[in-house]
Write a protein that binds this DNA or RNA. Sequence first.
DNA 1: GTGAAAGCGCTAACAG
DNA 2: CTGTTAGCGCTTTCAC
Lengths: 351, 351
Amino acid sequence: MSNLTLEDIAKQAGVSRSTVSRVVNDDPNVSEGVRNKVQELILSTGYHPHAAARSLASQHSKMIGLVLPRTVSSFFIDPYLPRLTQGVAQACNLHNLTLSLFILATREDEERIFPRVSSQGLLDGIIVQTAHKGDKLINRLINSGFPVIVAGRPFNTSGVSYIDVDNIQAACQAVNYLIQLGYSRIATITGMINSTAGIDRLEGYKKAINDQGWRIEPGLIAEGDFTELSGYEAMRQLLPLNPDAVFTASDTMAVGAIRMVKEAGLRVPQDVAFVGFDDLPVASLSDIKLTTVRQPIFRFGAQAVATLIDLIENGIKPSRRIIMETELIIRESCGGSLRKREKSSNLVMQS
Amino acid sequence: MSNLTLEDIAKQAGVSRSTVSRVVNDDPNVSEGVRNKVQELILSTGYHPHAAARSLASQHSKMIGLVLPRTVSSFFIDPYLPRLTQGVAQACNLHNLTLSLFILATREDEERIFPRVSSQGLLDGIIVQTAHKGDKLINRLINSGFPVIVAGRPFNTSGVSYIDVDNIQAACQAVNYLIQLGYSRIATITGMINSTAGIDRLEGYKKAINDQGWRIEPGLIAEGDFTELSGYEAMRQLLPLNPDAVFTASDTMAVGAIRMVKEAGLRVPQDVAFVGFDDLPVASLSDIKLTTVRQPIFRFGAQAVATLIDLIENGIKPSRRIIMETELIIRESCGGSLRKREKSSNLVMQS
DNA sequence: GTGAAAGCGCTAACAG
DNA sequence: CTGTTAGCGCTTTCAC
């Protein structure tokens, strides 16, 4: 492309650099005539401002970063992160921001990334996906004083802005639904217990059971790690205990668990009913239509960007906390279809 | 973080800006003693060079862009693009490049993105996923004189550097495998016929059939669009014609087609055999282990980055063409298991 | 091996 | 409304 500068355009238009700068930046203080002439020139020459020069002079880059830490359910196996990424990317398009993506695959990546992400003049703010317990990255980022929003509640929330769904109440609602349908030996396959989502969804399961005055049976709780395979293996453990229903902390694990149930010669939902979590495409496409908790992953990304912009423009204090709503989507994997949909309460609070 | 500048470090170290710049950039022309003192100071103060200032002065940003145009099989449904993205992201980590991701979801995005992507001083080069026929973006990018590498052969290849797999030969090999197993009414479910991958895989199917001296039966060719649902629907069309085997142009479509076959009360592979394309996780995880053509998606991303770096450092001419190898992975969906793996020929050429 | 000096292309007061 | 003047923080000749 052209290597034109502001100066070139200014000369050709017979005005000063500042004037051209003003029309480029939509500054109202330019007369109609001059503005038109300059705009025309910009169009006809194909001039684009130099991004680096602009960043340097204006002290902001109009770029934000999305940092995805290492997870067991890696980027390309579980569709969660791709969807989040797309939600964020589209929101960036809308706001005319450029998105930088940092996928941390190895331990070395984690070290290497930090200087890059936190180097001055590159990013205006950062969205970072919550990570496992003990992960240092988020706190290093927060401590750097950078505008940061965490996607998913982090372990240490003091002074950090984050956005999450209410996993406890969503899981509780899902299990309650099973209870209302008359199931009474309800098992759960958890997510990783070193992730807040894993912990909270288990918490919701326990709450629903306790609310009935029932005893929590440890055998009915099998730990998974959000992957298909872990669901399959967890179900193998659960089967001898004859659960009549299972709440899985992700749809992907439900798929694995159902595979195991079928291999054991049992039917879904007649022998074992299922409720999943996420509402991924697989939930409605597989032969068993899965009842599941729908997360608004897509809007989640958009909201993360919006909140980050807020942090950038209005300061990082006080920290913001956004809780987004979930929906229980009733399909066929539980037998009954008492109701069509149940909305969770919608919470948006600031602290 | 610190808002230290080169100047600050220089002052504290009692040297000039240039010297500090030299140690930051690993210039050999610095005495051991000075270098150590400065490096220590950099470490202890937590100084990081200002990215924008550096880009402006050095005329390169160490950033590359990955542009993903609109596709039917959108970013979060088909795992292909996420995997490609991860491959590219990891290669960027390795080369200390920053990755900017542009996901084009709407027509407006396409318009908005171009000025951003091609603005000077932002990106050193661009990887763009090949798009449907008639897409203008790739050519606009190429014409801008920017270093660009296309992932997947574009429709117009003149003067463009791209990287692809040999879809024709891979598809042909897959169908030949079915033929060798004794299947004779072999159908195919194609990808979108306005994509080069869709066209080439169909071409490979036809070639294999023709090579046998068989007649191509138009009814045995059903068009899909790479999605699960389209595979399901295409299989519905195919079923009345009693194919004994089907080559699908993607694993995702194979999953849909198999779902239809089962709903029709038929068995895989006894009644209908399947070969897919991609070797996505679903191929090995579903109850039917899918024989499929494995694409090296991950290394594909790494190779794209390597080639882009070549274009950036050594000029965009002559255009580079990289063809990566595929492998036929034999599993259970075809009944037989004559061989374990077949490697395709490996081609790497330049033009 | 080191420093001085001149920009890179833009924004942002500040005058007028 | 417009132009002038300083920088933004770094790299990069060019002398010494």
